[in-house]
Amino acid sequence: MEITTITELYVFVLAGFVGYQVITRVPPLLHTPLMSATNAISAISVVGAMVIAGAHYNRVSTILGFIAVASATVNVVGGFLITDRMLRMFRPAGRGGSEAPAEITAAPGTPVAASAGTAASAAPAAGSASPTAR
């Protein structure tokens, strides 16, 4: 066993601890974004794939490297985009998400205003077709 391996084990164990501390604090609300985010991050194997695809070791490894770069990139691009798309949707009461049609303000003449003090959700009774949030 070489000394670099030991150093790498250090890194692994410490990163594991940090990860555990950080991830236990993520609320269940965000568990799906957490999963897609960590998945996108772990596609960092793209850097290993890039070296293999570009190093010209031999034909086989170049082809394998190319496929690996492509699939890791799918993971990076798709993973970060979808995480962002999900996170954009999470919004607290009283604030319109960027993806949400501005239905809260557009409620003049809505019958029965929110009497329970839940003003945020007093959306227009009529014509609020479900938002076509893709």
Partner: peptide, 26 residues
């Protein structure tokens, strides 16, 4: 990285991956 001598496959791989990944994400 000094080991990389040819960028063709890397660029192509990233392009293909992005082309598949974008619709998957969006």
């Amino acid at each position: 990285n000094h080991e990389i001598v040819d960028y063709h496959w890397i660029v192509l791989g990233i392009a293909v991956g992005a082309l598949i990944g974008y619709p998957l994400g969006m």
